[in-house]
Design a protein around this nucleic acid. Structure first.
Lengths: 217, 217
DNA sequence: CCAGCGTATCAACACAGTGTCGAGAAAGCC
DNA sequence: GGCTTTCTCGACACTGTGTTGATACGCTGG
């Protein structure tokens, strides 16, 4: 499954020493961040805002987190972990019921990221300026692509899918499509797919790209 | 074709009064911006840097442009216009030679945006924080999607493509895929498609999504 | 040939935000 | 009750943005 990326190897993105009661403050900061992100974009939120929201002064904020970015990264980390857990079931089902299994697999991400839009959008915004955010997200994408490649190869091996593009290339483009389409929809971009159409559209394209034969001249 | 979006209705994004010799300075600023963007990301460049690069002081910069963002927007505007011009030919060819025509159409964007990566990447970065950049890019996407929808519908009407997803939904997801895949490749993201594979992969998925029949159970 | 007006320039300022330092309060614990 | 560790914040230093007001520059018409 997805693997590494997470808090595992870098345990304390948050406060300097993970102990005692300041715990509560840390949670207050994270909660404030998520709340404020629901109202405005990341760049509109200052460290001052986060501190005030958590009932502390700005310097005290820095006792708990090294920067605003670190707060968001923590939030994203957790969300990503949540998403990784959910996704396994759909993939398992894929061999018997391709379309339904695929839909289930895609739905897992859709739901986790969709239910915490504020964090999802902040993650995307952060990626533009923060290398750690880029690395974190790269890892997520890599996990998805690896899974999708494996599925495509398995389906080809058992004769359910015809040969075609290298599995990894195909998986890469499809995962990228998913990411972008989700983002556009969640961000309310115009144009974008309607929220209740998103999965249908993506699943259909995946099915054709994986199971469809090479097209006519 | 693509339509509006461009400098047409908002003629002077640049200096306050479009006259005389300060013209040279304006060009110097734009050139400096493009040069510096080749070295580092937008957020690493300050107005000071742009001014210095153009041989003027920071306040003087503000005589020519209202902000750093406006400079980049001007650069992007021009690139977008360039891209719009190129694309027509491929679409025309599409009816006789679907695969070749499609490839040609996609290639047009690939080449324009690929040949000015610095600006392309800056545009993407800007979108994260700047509403005008988002609007500009939305317009570009909208144009592409409209064109792609029209093509899909035409191909279905003449019986070359089977029915399937609503043309606009399909077009939206495919264009989003293209955008994201191009960006990842140009930005050197990991994972991403290799530059010399990008078009082949995208064209193949487009072909299957448009011309392939609905997939098996 | 110089008065006068737009064009162009910049030093100095006001502001908003980040991150740090060092002095101190409060909370454990021996 | 002293010592240590955790926690807190006022005050500071710094970076970057955008504005203001004074001034110089160059042309054009009287």
């Amino acid at each position: 499954m997805n693997a590494s990326v997470s808090t595992a190897e870098a345990p304390a993105r948050g406060r300097r020493t993970p102990r005692a009661s300041g715990d509560e403050r840390e949670r207050a900061i994270l909660a404030t961040a998520e709340r404020l992100l629901g109202q405005g974009s990341l760049s509109e939120i200052s460290v001052e805002d986060l501190a005030k929201g958590a009932g502390i002064s700005r310097p005290t904020f820095y006792f708990y987190f090294p920067s605003k970015d670190a707060v968001v990264l923590t939030l994203v980390d957790r969300m990503v972990e949540e998403a990784a857990v959910n996704r396994a079931s759909g993939i398992a089902k894929l061999a018997e019921e391709p379309r339904a299994g695929l839909r289930l697999a895609l739905q897992a991400s859709f739901e986790v990221f969709g239910s915490r839009r504020a964090v999802t959008l902040a993650a995307a915004e952060l990626r533009a300026t923060n290398a750690e955010a880029r690395a974190l997200w790269s890892g997520v994408m890599e996990g998805w692509i690896a899974d999708a490649s494996a599925v495509i190869e398995a389906e080809r091996a058992r004769g359910a899918a015809p040969p075609g593009l290298p599995a990894r290339d195909l998986a890469t483009a499809l995962i990228q499509m998913n990411e972008r389409a989700h983002y556009a929809t969640f961000a309310g971009e115009q144009p974008a797919l309607a929220e209740d159409r998103l999965l249908d559209v993506l699943v259909d394209i995946w099915m054709r790209a994986i199971y469809g034969a090479d097209a006519p001249a």
